[in-house]
Amino acid sequence: MLTFLNHFINGISLGSIYAIIALGYTMVYGIAKMLNFAHGDVIMVGAYVCFFAVSTYNLPPIVGVLLAIVICTLLGVIIEGLAYKPLRQATSLAVLITAIGVSYFLQNAAQLLWTSNPKIFPNMFGGASIKLFGGELIIPVGTLVTIAACIVIMIGLTLFTNMTKMGKAMRACSEDKGAAQLMGINVNRTISVTFAIGAALAAIAGVLLCSAYPSLVPTTGSMPGIKAFTAAVFGGIGSIPGALLGGILLGIIEIFAGAYISTQLSNAIVFLVLILVLLIKPTGLLGKQIREKV
């Protein structure tokens, strides 16, 4: 029973990381109608920034996290401005290929700058843990922080998109860019802000991910990126609660599949579940299907 509980908590924690990454995918998709496949690699950049800040320059972990957020936010805006903005009128296939290109560019740049030797990510939480049931169940503080971060981010984003003018403008742009412009909304700026938010979330996810799995290489972000994309589709791409639900479910399925079925097959099982969900509900679990009245 305790083992089960332990796996469950680990699943939620891993799922929280997927959810935070998936939010970036889903928000950018919602507004720019594109899949930003470079998103996973922004995670990797964030992790490296934090690694160098903390391990090389001995800065406090919180400063490392903030630096990672700032640099990734800038990176997100630069990527959008240089690579995607000129393609605003292009076909979605051209944008998709560009995104894959940006992804490879970031991975190779990281390899050139930081080599492909794994870096051991510092323990951001000092290795502290909480012991329950007389020491039978040990929960690392990092696991709890990850879950808490996910909850805070979800609440924050929900408030932002529903209560603030900028957040509402983002929703307006994601529905109808032409009508949004008629309202006086600067669509290009709104898209930049969305990329900035997504990239900032990627930085946080990178730090949390590498705290849980401390081996950092230039391809660190790619598999979690693909899985988070899966989570976003699973939950219903474009939907913020969908990203949370998809991410958490994916994390739990992955951990349980690894624990009770087969470690080698855990990824295959994750994707199998995705295929099944999409066969039954093509829009994802919380995907919107809008009926228009005329």
Binding site: K168, R171, E175
Partner: peptide, 27 residues
């Protein structure tokens, strides 16, 4: 640019209404 025109005092109710269907009336 299109998004600066409304501030000049020119509003456009487009063909097909194009209201934001997923947002509330007040939003």
């Amino acid at each position: 640019p299109a998004h600066k025109i409304v501030a000049e005092g020119l509003a456009h109710v487009p063909e097909g209404r194009r209201i934001f269907l997923q947002m509330t009336v007040e939003d």
